[in-house]
Simulated scan of single mutants.
Amino acid sequence: MIKRMLKLAACVAPMVLVVGCASNKAAQYDYTAFKAAKPRSILVLPPLNNSPEVNATNSVYAQVTYPLAEAGYYVLPVALVNETFKQNGMTTAADIHALPPVKLQQIFGADAGMYITINKYGATYTVLNSVIVVEAAAKLVDLKTGTVLWSGTASASNNEGGNNGGGGLVGALVAAAVKQIINSTTDQSHPVAGAASNRLLSAGLNNGLLYGPRSENYQKQ
C-alpha cells in the first residue's frame, strides 16, 4: 500500500508543478488598440495620490518623463503642462484626471495621455525594520477617442535585497532604529519612486509599453 501511494505521489507531483507554473504565468497584453493608434506624443497628467505622503505627486511627476522619452515618445514638458492647468484654474490631480480626453487633446495637441495613480509612497515601520515602498499604476489613453491603449502597475522598495546583516535580535533592532531615523529625516522615497517609475514606464518589458516612433526598436515590435 505504501509503495502504491509513493508511486501515485510521484506521478501527481509533476502535474502539480505544471499547474502551478501555468497559473503564475501572466497573460500576454493585447496591444491591438495601441498599435492601431500609433501615438507619437504623450501628455503626462499630474499623478493622482492615494498615499498619505503629500510630496508623492511632485516626486513621481518629476521622474516619469525620462523613461517615456527613452522609450521613443515626445513628452510634453511637465512645467509647461502644470502651468497651463493652473492658468485654467485646475490645481488638483483629481480634477485634471476628470477632464474629458478630447478636451485635453484640444488644449495640448498630444496623441495620448498618461494617467498615473500612486497607491503607496513612503516608509512602513515595524519593530525590526523600516521599508520604503512606492507603488503606482498607469494607463495610456488615446485623447481623441478615450480608448485605453495600455495599462500596468509597478512597485519598488529600498529593501529588495533583504536584510542579510548579522548581529541577531539586538543587531536587527539597532539597524531598524538607524533606518527609521534616516528615512524620517531624509527624502529616501524619491530615488525609490524613480525606480518604480522606470519599471512602470520603460518600453520593451513584459506587458509593458511599446516603443515609440523615435526609438530604433519601433519597427521591430
Rank of each mutant, 00 (worst) to 15 (best):
M1D: 15
I2F: 10
M5E: 14
C11W: 14
V12A: 15
V12S: 07
V18T: 09
V19E: 05
G20T: 05
S23T: 15
S23R: 09
K25I: 10
A27H: 08
Y29P: 08
D30H: 10
Y31C: 02
T32Q: 12
A33M: 07
K38L: 07
P39A: 01
P39S: 00
R40T: 11
I42P: 01
L43S: 06
L43K: 06
P46N: 08
P47C: 02
N50V: 11
N50F: 15
N55P: 01
A56N: 04
T57W: 08
N58T: 14
S59Y: 08
A62K: 15
A62F: 14
Q63H: 13
Q63Y: 12
V64K: 05
V64A: 06
Y66W: 10
L68W: 00
L68G: 00
A71L: 01
Y74I: 15
L76S: 02
L76Q: 03
V81R: 09
F85T: 04
F85K: 01
F85H: 03
Q87H: 12
T91R: 06
T91M: 06
A93D: 04
A93F: 03
A93W: 04
H97Q: 13
H97K: 12
L99K: 09
K103E: 13
Q105L: 04
Q106Y: 04
I107N: 04
F108W: 01
A112V: 00
T117H: 07
T117R: 11
I118E: 11
N119V: 05
T124R: 09
T124L: 10
V131Q: 14
I132Y: 10
V134F: 09
A136M: 15
A137I: 06
K139S: 08
V141I: 12
L143M: 04
G146A: 04
W150G: 02
A154F: 09
A156I: 03
N158F: 07
E160R: 08
G161V: 00
N163F: 12
N163G: 09
G165N: 15
G166L: 08
G168P: 12
L169E: 14
G171V: 03
Q180W: 05
I181A: 12
T186R: 11
D187I: 13
Q188R: 13
S189M: 09
S189L: 04
V192H: 05
A193T: 07
A193P: 04
S197E: 08
R199D: 15
L201E: 02
L205R: 14
N207H: 03
N207W: 03
G208E: 01
L209N: 00
L209D: 00
L210T: 05
G212Q: 01
S215G: 00
N217D: 01
Y218K: 00
Q219I: 06
K220E: 08
